[in-house]
Simulated assay, not measured.
Amino acid sequence: MLHSNLPEPQLLKVLLEPLLEDFQYWFTRSRSLLQTEVIPFLEVAQQQALLERVETALNDVIATQSLFRATDGQVGVDTQVLMQWHTLLMECWQVAHHYRLSKSCDA
């Protein structure tokens, strides 16, 4: 394992901090897409539900980042939560990819 000789708090900082930043970046981008574009292959209710899930996850990530910083990296995130965020991001990436493909076919 990379950095396996680091004490646990430093290991968390090295691994978790950039992961949380990535989640925040991608959830922010996903939120922007879902708020500003009409996704033709999603029903309005589906798009709104996905947006709500993204906003909830983004708020959770931001809160986790704040707690992580406030405790100087002394808190972690349950693996199950990380997997839920990852699964949601995969869904958002698929929607964004499909949306870009549909836009390029329209051009």
Rank of each mutant, 00 (worst) to 15 (best):
V14A: 14
L33H: 00
D78A: 15
E17Y: 13
L82R: 13
W85Q: 03
P9M: 06
Q46S: 12
P9T: 06
G76P: 05
L6N: 07
Q65M: 11
M90F: 12
T56E: 15
P9A: 09
L88C: 05
W85N: 08
T71Q: 01
C105L: 10
Q94K: 08
L19G: 04
L89C: 02
Q65W: 02
T87W: 08
L89Y: 08
N59D: 15
L12R: 15
L19W: 02
A70I: 04
D22L: 13
S32C: 06
S4V: 07
Q74D: 14
D78E: 15
T36Q: 10
R69A: 14
P7C: 04
F27D: 00
E21R: 11
Q47I: 04
L11E: 05
L16C: 03
V14E: 12
L33Q: 05
L50G: 03
R29W: 00
Q74N: 12
V95T: 07
Q10G: 03
E17I: 01
V81R: 10
L51P: 05
L19Y: 08
R100L: 14
L16S: 03
R31T: 05
L19Q: 14
L12A: 14
A49F: 07
D22T: 15
W26M: 02
F23S: 05
H97G: 10
W26D: 09
A49W: 01
K13Q: 14
A70S: 11
T64R: 15
L33F: 02
C105V: 12
D78W: 10
L34S: 02
P7W: 01
V61C: 12
D72R: 09
S4Y: 14
P18T: 13
L51R: 13
T79V: 12
L58M: 06
V61Y: 11
L101T: 00
E37T: 04
T36N: 09
L34F: 08
E55L: 12
A57Y: 06
S4E: 12
L42Q: 05
S104N: 00
Q46W: 02
V38R: 07
R53Q: 15
G73E: 03
Q24V: 09
V95M: 04
C105M: 04
E52T: 04
H3W: 12
F41S: 13
L58D: 04
A63D: 09
Y99E: 05
L50C: 01
L15W: 02
F41Q: 01
S4C: 12
Q35L: 12
E8R: 13
R100S: 07
T28G: 10
T79S: 08
T36E: 00
Q94I: 03
T87P: 02
N5M: 07
F41D: 07
P9N: 08
T36S: 12
E91C: 10
E8A: 15
A49N: 09
A96F: 04
N59M: 06
T36K: 06
L89Q: 09
